[in-house]
Simulated scan of single mutants.
Amino acid sequence: MTKIYGTVSAGFEEVRTEFAAAAAAEAGLGAQLAVYLYGRQVVDLWTGDGVTGDSLHALYSSAKGAAHLVAALLVQDGVLKLDATVASYWPEFAAEGKGDLTLRDLLAHRAGLIGVEGGFSTAELADDRLLAARLAGRRPHWRPGAGYGYHAFVIGALVGEVIRRATGRTLQQVYEERVRAPYGLDFYLGLPEALEPRYVAVQPLLPHERAMAEANAPAPDSLTGIAFNLNATPPTDLTDFANTRAVRALGPASSGSVGNARGLAGMYAAAISEIDGRPPLLDPGTLAEFTRPHSTGPDLVTGERDHFLLGFEAQAVRYPDLGADAFGHSGAVGAQSFADPRSGIAYAYTRRRFSFGGGGGAPENRRLVPAVLRAAADARP
């Protein structure tokens, strides 16, 4: 029998039941689930050999949620202007017809700058400064602003370079100072070496899953292949990538986050809720701006329809019971995290082993999220 550890508040027992069912359905699943309701933690669960509530996992593109939260804070402060051109902050970016692209369009994945011919090395993918330097002079893969597509490995570096030019601080430094450290969050863009003993290595797909994934892999020279660095030699292996210390140490803001469900949910809770006397990080105007749709139709890279709000992934597309302004980001291993202002929920689910067929968040989230919302509806003040 699969053991489930941790606690749930009264009224959230169904969430524990669904979490146990997910663990029972997948042998060897190592996972965590944390949920906040109006700034108060109501779910704290974990399962799996070698996994505790404190374990730190590779959370891949969950980093993008932190990156876009930092961008939103700097827009809120007036340091960044959404309708200013990227080149007004970063002149080199204007090359190859990109001079008119605005920060708003960049955040909305409309730059067309998803990758480069021949792909990136692991050293480049790990270091946002190297990525930004290589991308600045590149020709986009579609006319900037004319369509949108997931900038999988590079959006954090592009937005981060704008932030560095505007503030003199890296995105990672601003995140640490404004978000992670003040709230004591176990969610990192740059994992300190002292915390390495708490890192639980990613487990890859099972052999039959890997064979199926390889059989259905996109062509390396397709937009999808380029965006996911499958045109590199060798193509990027996500398991090896996350299990590389240099990646965890540098914390690239597209792909290199490390943390646990408590820390990730705590970040989204801080974005929308009062916590320990601190007001929400995002004021109503900023929240409204960053949680309205900025692109419609299919994503040119993933094919997902109506994929993004402003930077953040639109969550109601995947989980229809959420409010239209629910915002967050998934992570390649099957992680899912978001804030839902309508219900007051902040949610984070992490996994140790890759989910096969998750489509931006492991399939079990489609049962866990409704269970959380049902419990939250009964628990509203």
Rank of each mutant, 00 (worst) to 15 (best):
T2Y: 08
F12H: 02
E13L: 01
R16N: 07
E18M: 11
A21Y: 04
A25K: 15
A34F: 08
L37D: 03
R40Y: 02
V42S: 05
V43W: 06
D44N: 14
S55E: 03
L56H: 02
Y60M: 07
S62P: 03
K64T: 05
K64N: 08
H68C: 05
H68S: 03
L73R: 13
L74Y: 08
L74V: 08
V79F: 00
K81Y: 00
D83F: 07
D83W: 02
V86C: 10
V86S: 10
W90Q: 09
A108S: 14
A111I: 00
V116G: 01
V116D: 02
E117Y: 06
G118L: 07
S121E: 05
E124C: 03
L125N: 04
R129Y: 05
L130S: 12
R134W: 01
A136L: 02
G137H: 01
R139F: 00
H141F: 13
P144S: 04
G145N: 08
G147S: 14
G147T: 10
G147C: 04
Y148T: 15
Y148R: 15
G149M: 13
Y150H: 13
L158D: 06
V159M: 12
G168F: 01
R169P: 00
Q172D: 02
Q173A: 15
E176T: 10
E177I: 08
R180C: 08
G190A: 12
L191I: 10
P192K: 12
R198W: 02
V202H: 05
Q203L: 14
Q203T: 14
P218T: 06
A219S: 14
T224F: 12
G225Q: 09
A227H: 08
A227R: 09
F241Q: 13
T244Q: 13
R245P: 14
S254R: 08
S255M: 10
S255Y: 02
V258I: 12
N260R: 02
R262D: 02
A265P: 11
M267T: 10
A270M: 07
S273N: 07
S273I: 01
G277I: 05
R278I: 00
P279H: 08
E289M: 09
G297I: 06
D306L: 14
F312A: 10
V317Y: 00
V317T: 14
P320L: 01
P320V: 05
A324M: 10
D325H: 08
S330C: 11
G334R: 03
G334I: 03
G334E: 01
S337P: 04
G344F: 08
A346Q: 07
Y347M: 14
A348H: 07
A348V: 06
A348I: 11
T350S: 05
T350P: 04
R352G: 04
R352S: 04
R353Y: 00
F354K: 03
F354H: 04
G360K: 07
G360M: 09
G361Y: 07
R366H: 12
R380Q: 15
